[in-house]
Design a protein around this nucleic acid. Structure first.
Length: 1006
RNA sequence: GGGUGAUUAGCUCAGUGGUAGAGCGCUUCGUUCACAUCGAAGAUGUCGGGAGUUCGAAUCUCUCAUCACCCA
């Protein structure tokens, strides 16, 4: 059956992928023929994810390395999987539920909500897997991993043990002292009501204002405020003020102010340091403190300090005793200030039952504020409304000094898009300072290499300045923190802190056992230990663990503890905590599996630079902390895919190219080849569809070369020869293309070894199109059509071999079209995906054949160029004359006459003593050739052609001679460079002489 | 403000000290049996500006300009 004219990607891709999967071609170790292993972990996409250009790029590069190693016989594993994406998944599921009018708060039990999430995951969580398959990704899907597999409540089919790994790591790290719970300011997302990481916060510029508020000075204090200035800006007149003006972009936080800061050297305020102001509305007396953070040139130079609601204020507060812990406050004789949280978890102003807030306030003020802002659950004001109310009131009461419009950055949650609130809460942290050392060391000493190298700097910079990592999230979808709280006892067995004792264990029963031991030791009795499962009941507040201590007392005796009820921390772990274990977790750790032994440490990680901190650094730290080994020896960091104008692709800009649509239109191979050809290290790639179309055409070109071969019996030779080296061929053309194939094999391997994907793609493009299709197929025609039986046989065999090599070498980049052609151009033992990667090299290259064919190609191009410029009709056969040919040229001509004549449309070659008038000169090494075109030749056109050529040669000669005439060049340049330059100058001189002679002859004519 | 990178043909980009390249686009020609998703030929560059090192610089150094990204 004759081949179609083009490759039908839409039909073939699904069929071929199914065939690969069915045959188990991607399974770990498939096609292994040597002991070395090669393992890549996929950067797990979100379970909510769908394929975007970045995934397409990232996974194309991984697939190339994986297919290349598998064909070379490595024991190969490409481990796929997804992460459970805490916030993103909760968002998607809540959105689904919202369609039915249900919210998360309608669920009575956490388990019910989590069950819904699992339901969603099983229905819709596989989207990206199918999309990766369309791209051709050769992952071992039978091992597909999920960071929540095996978690409590996981349904059938999700029984993996990733959960065990996560919990075990937490417990290990907790016991090693790497994990602790503490009260710190975190980025709080009021929509999702959870802490989020710095990296999930984006800064958005918004139009806002600076509100100036007057805080009255207490105890009759005043200061001189400048009101008139001379030309130099020196104050010339002052007014006496009995208040300080603070400027703020967030007036609603004033309810939580614990001080006002001024610069210690500010002459206006120096005498006020240590005095107090009275906070309007609540009447709290707060100190004026000295801190460099206050910039005298900014605003009024006095800045309100709200430690519980601003990161900078927190630092100022800690330095100045106005953000003390409870213990510090007691020890300091209750003279300092504690930070005051005035918001609930939904960023509404929380005043009712807020003891920290009310503590030093005027009771009437408090009552008024509660009535206005926080009367009851329905009336509690969101932060924006409270701001409006406060400004209005300030205006009415005369303590609003003014309003200045101000454009400033406001942090927003990248998922929720709402303004982030710095929020003071208890959270769990990894004490990264304790585990960062080995991760830095591994890259410094080269055990792990980051490519391109510039990214090592980013890695070092981030790790050297690492902050504690907040790993708790107030979500339901995730790994619940394996810590149970119970009352802490003193040496007399008395409760000192209801929440003070933590029991960290992999299971509830182990925690209970730990607790029983603790209480027995403290009390000398057996204390009954139970577990209380808390539920989310407090609207607008975070659910905290609530352990219970039960005791009995008889008469005057101390109460005796007889039972406690533990309460588990309700928080879950940051998704990145589980993704951080990806390399070991996917291989079955903590079980000692054969895969873990075989494939860990893995080889290469391919990822985008945007998650170097998020993920790469954390994997390094965690693997080293947990199993004390690096997770991979090479990290290849690729750039971003942008649109053709260089803009980051984003849904809001509408410039997103959907890889699946591109695959539909151009085929997966074309998309893959484009991404590969543009993957120069460290550069963003700007993608345009015309480029993809170009590479689709490349596939068609290859297809048609095979089609030509098929039509000429290349694949159906009844007595085929076998080509093993260039000595199996006699014809120069065949010997030449065998050598060219060997060259490209070396180039491709070298490129891939160095992660120079674009070099591999471009070398193959130039070879397949520029060498095989443009020249070899054309050269083969005279042999296949008119050659001797032996020549035909040899050429068919060579062509079959060359095309096979093209398919093999292209397969990692273009798996579909190559596999399809492989199947239709021969009877094969194995599919191409498992074909043996060649190892031939220099021994296949015949320098003589190389020289000869390059001469032939030059000659044909010269003749074609002369003809085209002289306006010789394309179809016309022309005679050619030679006045001189050296032996090499003579041999080359004799051996390749048929194909030169065919491709250059030369009718004959005759040797003459002198050229007749009206000839067009063909400049070629080792021969004087000319086309007698007396009837046709346009003297002026030929003259300008020759002059142009001469001008170019003269310019080149000038440069070359300039160097050769410089004694310093002869002395200091390497011998071979000097030699090369001499040869080149010689050749140019010969060519110029020929052109001059030709010009002289033209002169005779004209 | 700090850091990183970029500036090469009309466009998008390769190019680690030795004759400036590719793809796309453009112009002219072409229905010969692999391919018009094609073929042949052609035009197009003070390699961002300036200075330096060197026999020799797109490439190394310094400086200026412009742009981009990351972090504050």
């Amino acid at each position: 059956m004759p081949m179609e004219k083009t490759f039908n990607a839409a039909e073939a891709e699904a069929r071929l992928y199914a065939a690969w999967e069915k045959a188990g071609c991607f399974a770990a170790g498939a096609n292994a023929s040597r002991p070395e292993t090669f393992c890549i972990m996929i950067p797990p996409p979100n379970v909510t994810g769908s394929l975007h250009m970045g995934h397409a790029f990232n996974n194309t590069l991984q697939d190339i390395l994986v297919r290349w190693h598998r064909m070379r016989g490595f024991d190969t594993l490409w481990q796929p999987g997804q992460d459970h994406a805490g916030i993103a998944t909760q968002m998607v599921v809540e959105r689904e539920l919202a369609k039915q009018g249900i919210t998360r708060r309608d669920f009575e039990r956490r388990e019910d909500f989590v069950a819904k999430v699992w339901e969603w995951k099983q229905q819709s969580g596989g989207t990206i897997i199918n999309q990766l398959k369309r791209l051709g990704a050769s992952c071992d899907w039978s091992r597909n991993a999920f960071t929540m597999s095996g978690a409590p409540g996981a349904p059938a089919g999700e029984e993996g043990n990733f959960h065990d790994a996560v919990i075990k790591v937490f417990v290990d790290m907790y016991n090693k002292g790497y994990i602790y719970r503490g009260k710190r300011l975190v980025n709080w997302d009021p929509h999702f009501e959870t802490a989020i990481s710095d990296l999930e916060v984006e800064q958005v510029e918004v139009d806002g204002a600076m509100w100036r508020l007057r805080y009255p000075l207490e105890n009759g204090e005043t200061y001189q405020h400048p009101v008139e200035f001379d030309e130099d800006g020196t104050p010339t007149a002052y007014e006496t003020r009995d208040y300080l003006v603070v400027a703020t972009t967030r007036p609603e936080t004033m309810l939580g102010d614990t001080g006002v800061a001024v610069h210690p050297d500010d002459p206006r305020y120096r005498h006020l340091i240590g005095k107090t102001v009275r906070l309007p509305l609540c009447g709290r007396s707060i100190p004026i403190v000295a801190d460099d953070y206050a910039d005298p040139a900014k605003g009024t130079g006095a800045v309100k300090i709200t430690p519980a609601h601003d990161f900078n204020d927190w630092e100022v507060g800690r330095r100045n005793g106005i953000a003390q812990t409870h213990e510090e406050w007691i020890e300091g004789g209750k003279t300092g200030k504690k930070p005051i949280n005035v918001m609930d978890t939904r960023a509404r102003i929380w005043l009712r039952d807020n003891h920290d807030f009310a503590e030093d306030c005027d009771p009437d003020g408090v009552a008024r504020l509660i009535a206005a802002i926080d009367p009851d659950d329905e009336g509690r004001m969101p932060r924006q409304d409270a701001r409006d109310w406060i400004i209005e009131t300030a205006q009415e009461e005369g303590w609003l000094d003014g309003i200045d419009p101000d454009r400033h950055m406001v942090p927003h949650g990248d998922r929720s898009k709402v303004a982030i609130e710095p929020y003071l809460t208890d959270q769990w942290f990894v004490d990264t300072a304790k585990i960062v050392g080995p991760a830095l060391e591994a890259v410094r000493d080269g055990r792990t290499k980051i490519l391109p190298e510039q990214h090592e700097k980013v890695y070092f910079h981030w790790l050297e300045n690492i902050e504690p990592w907040c790993i708790s999230r107030q979500l339901w979808w995730g790994h619940q923190i394996p810590v149970w709280f119970g009352p802490e006892l003193d040496e007399h067995g008395q409760v000192t802190d209801l929440l003070g004792k933590q029991f960290c264990a992999a299971s509830e029963s182990e925690a209970v056992q730990l607790a029983a031991e603790y209480y027995r030791e403290k009390t000398g009795r057996t204390v009954e230990v139970g577990v209380h499962h808390i539920e989310d009941t407090l609207e607008g507040f975070r659910h905290e663990p609530m352990p219970i201590a039960g005791s009995t007392a008889w008469g005057d005796s101390q109460p005796e503890l007889n039972h406690v009820t533990l309460s588990r921390d309700p928080d879950v772990l940051d998704t990145w905590f589980s993704s951080g274990l990806w390399p070991i977790g996917t291989l079955g750790w903590p079980e000692d599996t054969p895969e873990l032994r075989k494939y860990f440490p893995t080889d290469v990680l391919i990822t985008g630079f945007d998650i170097i901190f998020f993920w790469v650094a954390r994997m390094m730290m965690m693997q080293l902390a947990v199993v004390d080994r690096i997770p991979f020896h090479t990290v290849y960091v690729h750039a971003l895919v942008r649109d053709e104008k260089g803009k980051k692709m984003s849904k809001s800009l509408g410039n997103v190219l959907d890889p699946l649509e591109l695959i539909d239109e151009f085929g997966a191979d074309a998309v893959r080849f484009t991404l590969t050809a543009m993957a120069a290290m460290g550069r963003d790639l700007k993608l345009s569809t015309s480029r993809i179309a170009g590479y689709r055409n490349f596939g068609t070109k290859l297809w048609n070369a095979a089609r030509f071969a098929e039509m000429n019996g290349v694949f159906s030779d009844e007595s085929p020869m076998e080509i093993r080296s260039n000595s199996d061929a006699v014809q120069t053309v065949n010997r030449w293309i065998i050598g060219e194939t060997a060259k490209v094999r070396q180039a491709v391997d070298e490129a891939l070894e160095n992660y120079r994907f674009n070099d591999a793609a471009n070398a193959l493009y130039a070879f397949v199109w520029g060498k095989v299709c443009d020249w070899y197929v054309e050269f083969s025609k005279p042999l296949l059509l008119d050659g001797s039986a032996e020549d035909q046989r040899e050429t068919r065999a060579t062509m079959a071999w060359v095309l096979d090599q093209c398919l093999i070498l292209l397969h990692p980049i273009m798996p579909f079209i190559t596999e399809d052609l492989w199947g239709m151009t021969g009877t094969r033992e194995k599919m191409l995906v498992h074909a043996d990667w060649p190892t031939y090299g220099a021994e296949m290259i015949d320098p003589d054949a190389d020289r000869e064919m390059n001469w032939v190609i030059d000659l044909i191009e010269e003749i074609r160029s002369a003809r085209a410029q002289m306006g010789v009709p394309a179809g016309a056969q022309v005679p050619m004359l030679a006045t001189q040919m050296d032996p090499a040229a003579r041999t080359a001509w004799d051996r390749n006459e048929a194909l030169i004549r065919k491709l250059a449309r030369v009718e004959s070659l005759s040797e003459v003593k002198d050229l007749p008038k009206g000839c067009v000169t063909i400049a070629i090494e080792g021969a004087h050739l000319a086309l007698p075109l007396a009837g046709i030749v346009d003297v002026a056109a030929e003259k300008s052609r020759l002059e142009k050529g001469l001008a170019k040669l003269d310019k080149e000669m000038a440069g070359l001679m300039g160097r050769l005439n410089n004694p310093k060049f002869i002395d200091s340049a390497p011998e071979e460079v000097v030699e090369e330059t001499r040869d080149l100058a010689e050749a140019k001189r010969d060519e110029a002489a020929k052109l001059r002679a030709a010009l002289a002859r033209l002169g005779e004519l004209g």
